[in-house]
Amino acid sequence: MAKVTVKNLNKYFDNGVHAVKDVTFTAEDKEFIVLVGPSGCGKTTILRMIAGLEEVSSGEIYIGNVLVNNVPPKERDIAMVFQNYALYPHMTVFDNMAFALKMRHIPKEDIKRIVYDAAKLLGIESLLKRKPGQLSGGQRQRVAVGRAIVRNPKVFLFDEPLSNLDAKLRVAMRAEIVKLHHTIGNTMVYVTHDQVEAMTMADRIVVMKDGVIQQIDTPLNIYNNPANMFVAGFIGSPAINMTKGKLIRKESDLYFDSEDYQLKLTPRQAEVLQNYANKDIIMGIRPEDIYDSRFDAMAESPQKFITKVDFVEPLGNEYHVVLTTANNEYTARFDPKDLPKMGQDLSVTFDMAKAHFFDPESEVNLY
């Protein structure tokens, strides 16, 4: 096993695009780390540079303690699972999984044992005689993972491996890959644009935008303490609500003034943000921290005001409710208790203890 260390990594393409900008992070030994961000943020380019499929413009990549910038891909002791599976259509599942072992001239009996052990681990023993065209998308994905497992690499690299699967199968395969990681314990670097995959699978997440790392942390820390507005908006569904306003002082307290309402900050927030009194600021609050005021017993620091119910979206176990004021719109996540009706006025509670405050220019989280 080995850790992966990326230091000051840059990638320039021939058209002058600076795709990866001074990226530094470490995937520790046996860690499952996920690179997440929108399309074009540089995450797949980083993975391909780690794999040796893309040339490094500047910076260093270490696998273990070995600098691998100029090491050929086949000598890096990595295995990559691609989005499109990349299986040989004319070969059986067994032969697809065994191919890399045959190239290493592993004895036939050892190949048979290794392939069957990997197939059992993935629950595809009954598929070994089939060809890829006879398999479902989920089965093909398992074969692609199995082909990587049999090589017993130091590092697994996953490039959006679940993107071609339907929603239900993606959930199942997420669980399979996480269980696989716990079973075999190899270092894994996983790329996705899906923040749900990142949140549910990662030991740590690397959030990227425009080739730059925005934040590296555990899933819960990123969700609860986003570094900036981009991270706060990208992680979480429905997305965090953002409101422009100003902090105003009333006697010894600070209030967030949106022009539609004024909400009192907690003493701790007021202490941290006292230098922003009478300045513009952006408040963020997640949908689950907005309550119908009739059911706000869970709010730690409740602040109430009146909204209008614009839309109610039933999802069975919960409802997403779009609320409007004169100048703003919010999405709340309500339990299906006594639901409000579209068009009615509704008193809502913001749990200010869970609110985030961002600088309008730098977009940095101030609290």
Rank of each mutant, 00 (worst) to 15 (best):
P153Y: 04
F82M: 03
H193V: 08
E55H: 06
V178H: 08
S136I: 07
L162G: 02
F82R: 03
G123D: 07
R48D: 10
L122W: 07
L135E: 07
K279T: 08
N8H: 14
K112C: 00
F256A: 06
D280A: 13
L346S: 11
V36E: 04
E160R: 01
Y190T: 01
H182E: 15
M201H: 05
S293T: 11
V36M: 04
K21I: 05
E125Y: 10
N221H: 13
Y190D: 00
K11W: 05
A202H: 04
V231C: 10
R104T: 10
I61H: 02
V206D: 01
A27I: 04
I149T: 04
S163A: 14
I78Y: 00
T331L: 13
I149K: 01
R130K: 15
Q214S: 12
M199R: 05
R170E: 00
H182C: 03
A51S: 11
T324C: 08
L157D: 02
M229L: 12
V17P: 01
I78L: 12
K129I: 08
K3Y: 05
N275R: 13
H90Y: 14
R151S: 05
T183S: 15
M199S: 08
N225L: 11
F295T: 05
N186S: 15
A27H: 00
T24Q: 02
A144H: 05
E363I: 08
E271D: 14
H356D: 09
K108N: 14
I78Q: 03
K209G: 09
R333L: 15
P360N: 12
N96D: 11
Q274G: 00
F156L: 08
D253M: 06
L157H: 03
N70W: 09
A227M: 05
V4F: 02
L35I: 06
I285F: 11
R174C: 01
E259F: 10
A239T: 13
I33Y: 01
A277Q: 12
D203C: 09
I240E: 03
R113H: 04
S347H: 06
G284Q: 11
T349C: 14
M188H: 07
F32C: 04
T26L: 05
F32I: 02
V115Y: 06
R286K: 14
F295Q: 11
L47K: 05
K3V: 03
F156R: 01
S293C: 09
E75K: 15
D335G: 09
N328D: 15
L127Y: 07
F230E: 08
S301Q: 08
L87N: 05
L47C: 00
L122E: 07
N365L: 12
N225F: 12
T266F: 10
M188Q: 08
S58Y: 07
L128I: 15
E109T: 14
D203K: 02
L67I: 09
E259R: 15
I46L: 00
F82C: 00
V155F: 06
P89S: 08
G52E: 03
V56E: 02
A297C: 00
N365C: 12
F357Y: 14
I106H: 09
M242Q: 10
Y12S: 02
E271M: 09
M80L: 15
L101G: 08
P238I: 06
A299T: 03
F99N: 09
N278A: 10
S57D: 10
N70H: 14
V171Q: 05
I222E: 04
D292L: 10
